[in-house]
Design a protein around this nucleic acid. Structure first.
Length: 215
DNA sequence: AACTCGGGGCA
DNA sequence: TGCCCAGAGTT
Protein backbone atom coordinates (compact mmCIF):
# COMPACT_ATOMS: atom_id res chain seq x y z
CA UNK A 1 0.00 0.00 0.00
CA UNK A 2 1.30 3.39 -0.95
CA UNK A 3 0.82 5.79 1.92
CA UNK A 4 -0.58 9.02 0.58
CA UNK A 5 -0.72 12.26 2.50
CA UNK A 6 -4.48 11.76 2.85
CA UNK A 7 -3.96 8.38 4.50
CA UNK A 8 -1.42 9.82 6.91
CA UNK A 9 -3.92 12.50 7.86
CA UNK A 10 -6.61 9.87 8.40
CA UNK A 11 -4.22 7.79 10.52
CA UNK A 12 -3.54 10.78 12.75
CA UNK A 13 -7.25 11.59 12.99
CA UNK A 14 -8.09 8.08 14.19
CA UNK A 15 -5.15 7.96 16.60
CA UNK A 16 -6.28 11.25 18.10
CA UNK A 17 -9.85 10.02 18.42
CA UNK A 18 -8.96 6.71 20.08
CA UNK A 19 -6.23 8.06 22.37
CA UNK A 20 -7.90 11.39 23.08
CA UNK A 21 -7.61 10.85 26.82
CA UNK A 22 -4.17 9.26 26.77
CA UNK A 23 -1.92 10.77 29.39
CA UNK A 24 1.80 10.39 30.09
CA UNK A 25 2.37 7.02 31.71
CA UNK A 26 5.29 8.33 33.73
CA UNK A 27 4.66 9.88 37.14
CA UNK A 28 6.06 13.38 37.61
CA UNK A 29 5.28 16.65 39.36
CA UNK A 30 7.81 19.07 37.87
CA UNK A 31 10.25 19.47 34.97
CA UNK A 32 13.00 17.99 37.10
CA UNK A 33 11.04 14.91 38.14
CA UNK A 34 9.85 14.38 34.56
CA UNK A 35 13.47 14.62 33.45
CA UNK A 36 14.56 12.02 36.01
CA UNK A 37 11.61 9.72 35.26
CA UNK A 38 12.39 9.86 31.55
CA UNK A 39 16.03 9.00 32.14
CA UNK A 40 14.95 6.06 34.30
CA UNK A 41 12.59 4.84 31.56
CA UNK A 42 15.39 3.85 29.19
CA UNK A 43 15.06 0.14 28.39
CA UNK A 44 12.60 -0.28 31.23
CA UNK A 45 8.82 -0.54 31.40
CA UNK A 46 6.92 2.51 32.63
CA UNK A 47 5.16 0.45 35.31
CA UNK A 48 8.52 -0.29 36.88
CA UNK A 49 9.63 3.33 36.57
CA UNK A 50 6.48 4.43 38.39
CA UNK A 51 7.13 2.05 41.25
CA UNK A 52 10.60 3.53 41.69
CA UNK A 53 9.58 7.18 41.30
CA UNK A 54 6.61 6.78 43.63
CA UNK A 55 9.00 6.11 46.50
CA UNK A 56 11.75 8.40 45.20
CA UNK A 57 10.10 11.74 44.41
CA UNK A 58 8.36 12.38 47.72
CA UNK A 59 11.85 12.69 49.19
CA UNK A 60 14.00 13.63 46.20
CA UNK A 61 12.25 16.00 43.80
CA UNK A 62 14.93 18.70 43.32
CA UNK A 63 18.57 18.73 42.20
CA UNK A 64 19.59 20.09 45.60
CA UNK A 65 18.08 17.11 47.41
CA UNK A 66 19.31 14.64 44.80
CA UNK A 67 23.00 15.57 45.14
CA UNK A 68 22.88 14.79 48.85
CA UNK A 69 22.88 11.11 47.89
CA UNK A 70 26.03 9.16 47.18
CA UNK A 71 26.39 7.27 43.93
CA UNK A 72 25.75 3.93 45.62
CA UNK A 73 22.79 5.26 47.59
CA UNK A 74 21.09 6.44 44.39
CA UNK A 75 21.93 3.16 42.68
CA UNK A 76 20.04 1.41 45.46
CA UNK A 77 17.03 3.70 45.01
CA UNK A 78 16.74 3.05 41.27
CA UNK A 79 18.08 -0.49 41.15
CA UNK A 80 14.82 -1.96 39.86
CA UNK A 81 14.94 0.15 36.69
CA UNK A 82 17.98 -1.54 35.19
CA UNK A 83 21.04 0.20 33.73
CA UNK A 84 21.14 1.67 37.22
CA UNK A 85 24.84 2.44 37.44
CA UNK A 86 25.01 4.72 34.42
CA UNK A 87 21.59 6.21 35.20
CA UNK A 88 22.63 7.05 38.77
CA UNK A 89 25.86 8.59 37.53
CA UNK A 90 24.03 10.66 34.95
CA UNK A 91 21.31 11.84 37.35
CA UNK A 92 23.87 13.00 39.92
CA UNK A 93 26.06 14.72 37.30
CA UNK A 94 22.96 16.29 35.76
CA UNK A 95 21.79 17.57 39.14
CA UNK A 96 25.19 19.13 39.85
CA UNK A 97 25.17 20.79 36.43
CA UNK A 98 21.65 22.14 36.95
CA UNK A 99 22.70 23.68 40.26
CA UNK A 100 25.95 25.16 38.98
CA UNK A 101 24.85 26.40 35.55
CA UNK A 102 21.09 26.87 35.67
CA UNK A 103 20.30 27.96 39.24
CA UNK A 104 18.77 24.61 40.06
CA UNK A 105 16.12 24.99 37.35
CA UNK A 106 15.62 22.86 34.24
CA UNK A 107 16.41 24.91 31.11
CA UNK A 108 13.70 25.03 28.42
CA UNK A 109 16.07 25.34 25.45
CA UNK A 110 16.70 22.15 23.50
CA UNK A 111 20.39 22.92 22.99
CA UNK A 112 20.86 23.39 26.74
CA UNK A 113 18.91 20.26 27.70
CA UNK A 114 20.96 17.92 25.54
CA UNK A 115 24.15 19.21 27.18
CA UNK A 116 22.99 17.58 30.41
CA UNK A 117 24.51 14.17 31.16
CA UNK A 118 22.13 11.35 30.25
CA UNK A 119 19.85 13.61 28.23
CA UNK A 120 19.59 13.00 24.48
CA UNK A 121 17.17 14.14 21.79
CA UNK A 122 14.41 11.82 23.02
CA UNK A 123 14.50 12.92 26.66
CA UNK A 124 14.87 16.59 25.76
CA UNK A 125 11.86 16.44 23.45
CA UNK A 126 9.76 14.64 26.07
CA UNK A 127 10.33 17.35 28.68
CA UNK A 128 9.83 20.19 26.20
CA UNK A 129 6.78 18.89 24.33
CA UNK A 130 5.01 17.13 27.19
CA UNK A 131 5.63 19.54 30.07
CA UNK A 132 5.90 22.88 28.34
CA UNK A 133 4.15 22.18 25.04
CA UNK A 134 7.08 23.16 22.85
CA UNK A 135 7.25 21.78 19.29
CA UNK A 136 9.26 18.59 18.93
CA UNK A 137 8.57 14.87 18.65
CA UNK A 138 10.26 12.50 21.10
CA UNK A 139 11.18 9.36 19.17
CA UNK A 140 11.56 6.32 21.40
CA UNK A 141 11.32 2.67 20.37
CA UNK A 142 7.50 2.75 20.26
CA UNK A 143 7.26 5.92 18.20
CA UNK A 144 10.01 4.70 15.88
CA UNK A 145 8.39 1.32 15.27
CA UNK A 146 4.79 2.52 14.91
CA UNK A 147 5.71 5.44 12.65
CA UNK A 148 7.67 3.18 10.35
CA UNK A 149 4.95 0.54 10.17
CA UNK A 150 2.20 3.05 9.45
CA UNK A 151 4.32 4.90 6.94
CA UNK A 152 3.68 8.08 8.91
CA UNK A 153 7.42 8.69 8.90
CA UNK A 154 9.91 6.20 7.58
CA UNK A 155 13.60 6.20 8.43
CA UNK A 156 16.47 3.99 9.49
CA UNK A 157 17.42 6.29 12.34
CA UNK A 158 15.32 7.95 15.07
CA UNK A 159 16.42 11.36 13.81
CA UNK A 160 15.05 10.63 10.33
CA UNK A 161 11.71 9.57 11.83
CA UNK A 162 11.68 12.65 14.05
CA UNK A 163 12.14 14.93 11.06
CA UNK A 164 9.55 13.01 9.05
CA UNK A 165 6.95 13.20 11.82
CA UNK A 166 7.42 16.94 12.13
CA UNK A 167 6.35 17.28 8.50
CA UNK A 168 3.03 15.44 8.88
CA UNK A 169 1.90 16.22 12.45
CA UNK A 170 0.36 19.63 13.20
CA UNK A 171 2.49 21.69 15.57
CA UNK A 172 -0.25 21.90 18.19
CA UNK A 173 -0.36 18.08 18.39
CA UNK A 174 3.35 17.33 18.78
CA UNK A 175 3.24 16.74 22.51
CA UNK A 176 0.04 14.68 22.16
CA UNK A 177 1.07 12.66 19.10
CA UNK A 178 3.99 11.41 21.16
CA UNK A 179 1.47 9.78 23.50
CA UNK A 180 -0.86 8.55 20.75
CA UNK A 181 1.97 6.64 19.10
CA UNK A 182 3.35 5.27 22.36
CA UNK A 183 -0.05 4.07 23.58
CA UNK A 184 -0.76 2.49 20.22
CA UNK A 185 2.58 0.70 20.38
CA UNK A 186 1.87 -0.49 23.91
CA UNK A 187 -1.72 -1.60 23.37
CA UNK A 188 -1.81 -2.94 19.81
CA UNK A 189 1.23 -2.37 17.62
CA UNK A 190 3.62 -4.48 19.70
CA UNK A 191 7.20 -5.02 18.68
CA UNK A 192 7.03 -8.80 18.33
CA UNK A 193 3.38 -9.67 17.76
CA UNK A 194 1.32 -6.73 16.55
CA UNK A 195 -2.40 -7.40 16.97
CA UNK A 196 -3.41 -6.24 13.52
CA UNK A 197 -6.81 -7.93 13.81
CA UNK A 198 -7.63 -5.57 16.71
CA UNK A 199 -6.11 -2.50 15.12
CA UNK A 200 -8.39 0.34 14.05
CA UNK A 201 -5.83 1.31 11.42
CA UNK A 202 -5.40 -2.07 9.72
CA UNK A 203 -7.34 -0.96 6.62
CA UNK A 204 -4.93 1.89 6.00
CA UNK A 205 -1.70 0.38 7.36
CA UNK A 206 0.83 -0.85 4.79
CA UNK A 207 2.30 -3.27 7.37
CA UNK A 208 -0.98 -4.83 8.47
CA UNK A 209 -1.20 -8.62 8.31
CA UNK A 210 -4.99 -8.46 8.00
CA UNK A 211 -6.26 -9.27 4.53
CA UNK A 212 -8.59 -6.71 3.02
CA UNK A 213 -10.84 -7.39 0.06
CA UNK A 214 -10.65 -3.85 -1.23
CA UNK A 215 -7.53 -1.86 -1.89
C1' DA B 1 26.91 1.63 12.69
C1' DA B 2 27.80 -1.39 16.39
C1' DC B 3 28.45 -2.17 21.19
C1' DT B 4 27.50 -1.82 26.16
C1' DC B 5 24.90 -1.22 30.10
C1' DG B 6 21.15 -4.54 33.22
C1' DG B 7 17.39 -6.43 35.98
C1' DG B 8 12.85 -8.22 35.37
C1' DG B 9 8.85 -10.08 32.48
C1' DC B 10 7.24 -13.23 29.44
C1' DA B 11 6.97 -17.09 26.03
C1' DT C 1 17.02 -19.81 27.35
C1' DG C 2 16.14 -15.79 24.31
C1' DC C 3 14.09 -11.59 23.36
C1' DC C 4 12.28 -7.21 24.83
C1' DC C 5 11.59 -2.97 27.63
C1' DA C 6 9.11 5.25 26.93
C1' DG C 7 18.07 5.44 25.43
C1' DA C 8 22.47 7.50 25.73
C1' DG C 9 27.47 7.42 25.56
C1' DT C 10 31.54 5.56 23.65
C1' DT C 11 34.38 3.50 20.10
Amino acid sequence: MRVTKAIKKEQLRRLQEVYRDARPALHYTSPFTLLVATILSAQCTDERVNVVTARLFPRLDTPEKMVQLTQSELEGEIHDCGLFRSKAKHILAMSHMLIENYGGEVPEEFDELIKLPGVGRKTANVVRSVYWGYPGIAVDTHVFRVSNRLGLAKGSTPLEVEMGLQKVIPIKDWGHAHHWLIWHGRKICHARKPECEKCFLSDICPSSTVQHSKK
